[in-house]
Nucleic acid binder design. Structure first.
Lengths: 101, 101
DNA sequence: TTAATATATCGTTTATAGACGATAAACGAT
DNA sequence: ATCGTTTATCGTCTATAAACGATATATTAA
């Protein structure tokens, strides 16, 4: 399995809007668990997550979409699959914002 | 001005539900700014916040209610006023959860 | 007792979230 | 070209959020 990186690299301080967007994305237990899982496993496809949670494929896909929109997660399409991973840079900047509260 | 403390002291690890609840509460720019303000100024009444933001008193009151429900903020009624402050213990435990992601 | 002040709640409107099943879209294999 | 696999999107329903004005509640001051 390849190591994937989102390489967003929008360095600098995260503004309140983006911070709120990530908080909102993390504002659901299932999405927090998805992010924790992605952090652990580094990269995985949607189907893996569907197998872990008691929700339908469409629901998990929707959660992943919201996570992607916030910037904390990114997806890389490869053939019929999409590999999801946490954007480490965004995560670190988000963690810095919370740390500095 | 007195120093107020919420003294919740529900020590121990924060569970995913509560963590998600706080993230959700912080999932709005205005509420993040309210929390930042409360951290800085330690304690203040609703009216002060109303004066800072371009929203109505009822809207700010509603934001404060959501923050209180999440546990990150508490309010202490004193006469006709309510003094709001951040629950430092909850904040620290929340920060620890994010740090350990 | 009444008036003024401070906050909370109610009712309304519009928008978004959360869940689902069904279906579409993209690709690999046969 | 079709089939199976994987993911995304659509449509629907119900619930909650976000904002407001109006009103209720609680307390202090006059």
């Amino acid at each position: 399995m390849k190591t994937r990186n989102c390489e967003t690299a929008t360095a600098g301080r995260m503004d309140t809007e983006q911070m709120a967007g990530i908080c909102k994305a993390l504002g659901h237990p299932t999405r927090i668990k998805i992010v924790e899982y992605l952090i652990d496993i580094n990269t995985c496809v949607c189907g893996e997550i569907v197998n872990i949670f008691p929700f339908s494929q469409s629901t998990i896909s929707q959660h992943l979409k919201l996570l992607k929109e916030s910037g904390i997660v990114c997806g890389e399409v490869e053939g019929p699959k999409t590999y999801f991973c946490v954007d480490r840079d965004v995560l670190e900047r988000f963690k810095a914002c919370i740390r500095d509260l």
